[in-house]
């Protein structure tokens, strides 16, 4: 096992991502942050508070569970459904930033796009991911990346966040899932 990102590096990465989001969208006025549970939701909350420090105001932040939209349901045991909370302002005409912890095959994001499509029609959909570990199976690319981690498929990337795991850390382990 090796540590890919320390707690400090995670904070730095999220700060940079926040700045990039504001830069690309020319401020925070039309932004909606949607975190993909479980860890993406916490990352979205953190990004929101960083943006609030920079801009002086929070942006609408919610969660988007994509379980029901997955295309690999049959290959796994049944999963518990997580919470979906769309901010009351909605997503219609907004710049929606999807937030996830690890970008890998891209299938989660495809499911998220399907889920979004059922809810409304944003002006743009952008993707922020703490880690991009490669091995895409779909034509999907992140707009904001905390760190690109070249990995082998046999390895597994684990993200630990203090909100649920008691510490901030990203590790790479041999022999994965």
């Amino acid at each position: 096992m090796s540590v890919a990102l320390s707690a400090q590096e995670i904070t730095r990465a999220l700060t940079r991502i926040s700045h990039e989001i504001l830069e690309k969208n020319q401020g925070s006025s039309n932004i909606v942050l949607l975190g993909i549970p479980t860890r993406g939701a916490h990352l979205a909350t953190r990004i929101n508070s960083i943006i609030a420090t920079i801009e002086g105001a929070e942006v609408p932040t919610g969660t988007l569970d994509i379980t029901l939209f997955r295309d690999d349901l049959r290959m796994r045991p049944p999963r518990a459904i997580m919470s979906t909370k769309i901010p009351t302002s909605g997503i219609e005409g907004k710049d929606v930033i999807l937030v996830d912890d690890v970008l890998y095959s891209g299938r989660t994001i495809r499911a998220a796009l399907d889920a979004l499509g059922e809810i409304g029609r944003p002006r743009t959909v952008q993707l922020a991911s703490l880690v991009d570990r490669g091995h895409r199976e779909l034509p999907i690319k992140a707009d904001f990346v905390g760190k690109n981690l070249p990995t082998a498929k046999t390895q597994s990337v684990k993200v630990f966040l203090s909100e649920i795991d008691g510490r901030d850390e990203v590790t790479i382990e041999e022999g994965g899932e």
Partner: peptide, 16 residues
């Protein structure tokens, strides 16, 4: 409970 939130909201149909 989660599914009732989904069906209360805008989503009427899930591809599951």
């Amino acid at each position: 409970t989660e599914l009732s939130r989904v069906s209360d909201g805008a989503v009427k149909k899930l591809p599951t």
